Every structure is written in C-alpha cells, then in structure tokens.
Amino acid sequence: MLLLAWPIGLLVWANGKIQHVEALSGAAGTPGETYLLAGSDARGEGISEDGTEGARTDTIMLLHKPRSGPASLISLPRDTYAEIPGKGASKLNAAYSWGGAPLLVQTVEQLTGLTVDHYIEIGFGGVEGIVDAVGGVELCLDYDVDDARSELVWTAGCHPADGPTALAFSRMRYSDPQGDIGRAERQRQVIGAISKKAADKSLLLKPGTQVSLIDAGLASLVVDEKTGIIDLGKMALAFRAANGPGGITGTPPISNPDYRPGGVGSTVQLDPDLSPAFWADVRDGKLPAGVVGGLPQS
C-alpha cells in the first residue's frame, strides 16, 4: 500500500503546484500532439539590446509527436522573421513581449501550420534549480569560451556543470560562431542532459530527490489552462523520443541568418520555398530521423 500511495500522492501534490495561464488559441486541431516550449526572461531593466521592451522569450521550441513516425524537437530561432497577428512582421520573440503566451502561440501556429495543444513556459532561473536538483549534468562544447555577456567560461571538451554554469551555457550566443543557431543546439543539449539524469532509475529509491526535482521544476513552470501533470509526463516521453536515435532535432530550413528587412535589425529568414513542406512532414511524421535544418550550406 505504501508503494502504491507514494507515487499517487506525489502526482496529486505535483498537479496542485502547477501554475496555469491562458495561452491556447482555440484553433482547430492538427494531427498528432504539439507542445510549444518557451524559455522566458523577465527583463526589469527596460529595453534590451535588441530593442525589445520588457519580458521576452529567448528559447522557443516546438515538440511534435505525430500519430505515426518519429517525434521531433524543432528550435525556432528567437530572431525568426515572422508575421505577428495584429502587429505586422517582426522578430518572433517580440510576440511574447507584446502579447505574452497567447500572441506567441498564435504567431507560432501561423508560422508552422501546427495547432499548439500544450504551452509550457519555464523561467530561465528555473534551469539552475533543476540542474542542481539532479546533481548537475555533463555538457560538451568543442571550443574555448570567455563570454562576458552570459558569464560563461569554458574550456573545450566535456565537463560537469552546475546550475549557474548550465544556465550560462544555454544563454551564450555572442561568442558562438553560429550565433542563435548554435545557442539553440546547446539549449537542446542542456534539456537532453537534464532529461537523462531525471530518467535515472536510481531516483525511484530517492524520494527526497524526487520531491526536490519536482519542486524545482514546477516552481518556475507555467502551462496553459488545460495542461496537467499527466500531460507533462507525456511531453517528457515525447521529448526523450525526439532526442533519441530514432528522433528528429534541429531547426526549420533557413535561407538567410542575417536577413535585414528594415526596421527590426538583423533577423533569421526561414526558407519560404522549403518551409511549408517541412512543417507538413513534421506534422505527418515523414521526416527521416536525425538532425534537420541549420544554416544554409554554401
């Protein structure tokens, strides 16, 4: 009875700690299950270096589990040039600054053609707590970094990272030769490393660690009005599948990483010819397993 009561009680307790926000658009569903993951950063210093005022989201990922075929985890560069409903064309992360979760959801749906079934937002500060709760993670980067903006100091290779280091690893882009694209790859690496540690079977014998991990994660987590703890569990399984050998990770097809349409600075232009078919293949599970997208090949 105790073995049965503990996980049930843990689920009930965890479900009660989840914070909710109005986010979903109510659009007609598309096949499969689609999760929009956003890493938010509430900036209290006014206007940021790219001209975006107030809160913004520097991490935007679309996780899709099709009815059949491989799961995919696609990073949308925060500077993606996109049409924002009611606002005109701008950088994708401006949608969150202007209209929070609802406008970001609508913008992503318009950009991809996929209806968002679940919205999950985590504050950047939560990354530190989660990484520390799992006892740190191992991260890899093949070049030295001493980046003043993110405060990441790194020697080429693989090293154990605590919470603050993992956060800096996730945020660094000015010292990355691939800029926002490289940062997206590192963000997926951090989340994958956390998932691997959290899936460790030894946690079953560590109830205190279970509570600390859930508490750290849910304290900085905000989800849409319909998502509960079971949905988050399904998301974790889909995320694990996408990051596995049979899954898909990467970005949409990019035609210009320094597109300057005027008025919004440097943006990332998705390939207008390849993108529609790409998102249809994501939806239908037709993409082959592996890494997709990235910077255009010269």
Rank of each mutant, 00 (worst) to 15 (best):
K17R: 15
A219Y: 06
R149D: 14
I230E: 13
N243H: 15
Q19N: 11
T155Y: 08
D142L: 05
I248R: 01
P160A: 13
C158Y: 13
H20R: 15
L37V: 13
A89V: 06
P276L: 13
G88V: 01
S212T: 14
R283E: 00
S266Y: 09
G192M: 11
I8V: 15
A38M: 08
R186E: 10
L37C: 04
A184W: 05
E49T: 13
W279I: 09
R260G: 05
V134G: 08
G262S: 10
S170F: 13
G100I: 07
D132C: 06
S298C: 04
P31M: 04
A216E: 13
R188P: 09
P85N: 00
Y81P: 12
D144S: 09
V105Q: 00
W13E: 06
R67S: 14
G86R: 04
V264Q: 04
G262I: 02
L92S: 10
H118F: 11
A166W: 04
L295C: 08
L24F: 05
K196R: 15
I122D: 00
A199N: 00
G126Y: 10
G135S: 09
L274T: 04
T34Q: 00
P272S: 11
H118Y: 11
E151Y: 11
L274F: 03
I194T: 03
D147W: 12
Y259M: 11
G290P: 07
I8C: 06
F124P: 02
S97W: 00
N256F: 07
R67L: 15
V222C: 03
I8P: 02
A14C: 10
E45P: 01
G250C: 04
A166C: 05
K226Q: 15
T209G: 08
L139H: 06
P66S: 14
D50S: 15
S202I: 10
Y96L: 07
L204P: 05
D180C: 13
G26Q: 02
G290I: 11
A156G: 06
S48K: 07
G263A: 01
E49V: 12
Y35Q: 01
G113S: 01
G285M: 05
D200V: 01
K91D: 13
S72Y: 03
G16S: 08
A199C: 04
L213K: 05
Q187N: 09
V223T: 14
A236P: 04
A5W: 13
I254M: 12
I214N: 01
D162E: 08
A94Y: 03
L213Q: 00
G179A: 15
S25T: 14
G113Q: 12
A23Q: 01
L167E: 03
H159Y: 09
T249P: 02
L2N: 04
G208Q: 07
S97D: 07
G285A: 13
K206F: 00
R67I: 00
G39N: 05
L103H: 05
N243T: 15
F169L: 02
L205M: 14
A148G: 08
P296R: 06
A219I: 01
